[in-house]
Design a protein around this nucleic acid. Structure first.
Lengths: 148, 148
DNA sequence: ACACATTGCGCAATGC
DNA sequence: GGCATTGCGCAATGTG
């Protein structure tokens, strides 16, 4: 399933995306294209409000580019980590399932052992009862266990 | 290696992003903005090569936009599902952990019970060996059962 | 050919 | 100011 892709070019400084703002609230109007030409100044903030601090953050600036690249790395890292964790969790499930089975088996064994011993015990009691005197305390010495 | 498309198109009014293509590879190129009004002359594909089948798929076309929107929905859905699954898995872990503890407790109990019974038997054996008859010191013949 | 599903990736907002 | 997370859209690819 799925493969990966070739990565971004290392040394190449690839300005690529324009991505007009449209984030945050999902919807957005104002097409607002930022010419952002190579030498073009990023001074194209819409008249609505050029808030955002006080600088539209030129998408050309080296600093911007650097920040982006760094963030991209961080994102990649974070996602990798996340994926790893998910996988670990999945593994943990299997592990627990296995252990569960083990325990269940052990319980079964112990239960059986117990049952045998109890039976022996009962038998013995009966013998005693038959041999010795039929006292009045040995009659309903029954204790059956019914586990689920 | 590397290459593929590269075009740009305006984000146009209702739409949101511009995204000057740069996927798959570290391409770049000037943002090539095109006014691209609603019906605007979007034809902005650079002369480099409009390979890709035979249609650069205008980012303005309604069809393109429709496809995008649909895909966005699908993506959202898929991610939600994925997240849900992850959460379920996490829950499963807790569930299993709980059950594990339960089982472990049960084992402890059974083990103890077994031990008691065994001791009882041992005592008996001793009595027999010593030839001691069951005088009237039977008091530990008590059976306590406390299972759940 | 076609529609939806997945997935890698970059951007931007936000958390810390 | 900086990395970490997260929602989101795009495009490539997978699947039926």
């Amino acid at each position: 399933m799925s493969k990966i892709s070739q990565n971004s070019t290392p040394g190449v400084n690839g300005r690529s995306v324009i991505h007009t703002q449209a984030h945050a609230s999902g919807l957005q109007q104002v097409p607002q294209l930022v010419p952002a030409g190579p030498g073009g100044g990023g001074k194209a903030v819409p008249p609505s409000k050029q808030s955002k601090k006080s600088s539209p953050m030129d998408r050309n600036s080296d600093e911007y580019r650097q920040r982006r690249e760094r963030n991209n790395m961080a994102v990649k890292k974070s996602r990798l980590k996340s994926k790893q964790k998910a996988q670990d969790t999945l593994q943990r499930v299997n592990q627990l399932k296995e252990e569960n089975e083990r325990l269940e088996a052990k319980i079964k064994l112990l239960t059986k052992e117990l049952s045998v011993l109890k039976d022996l015990f009962l038998e013995h009691a009966h013998n005693l009862a038959d041999n010795v005197q039929p006292s009045s305390t040995e009659n309903t010495t029954n204790s059956d266990n019914a586990e689920q």
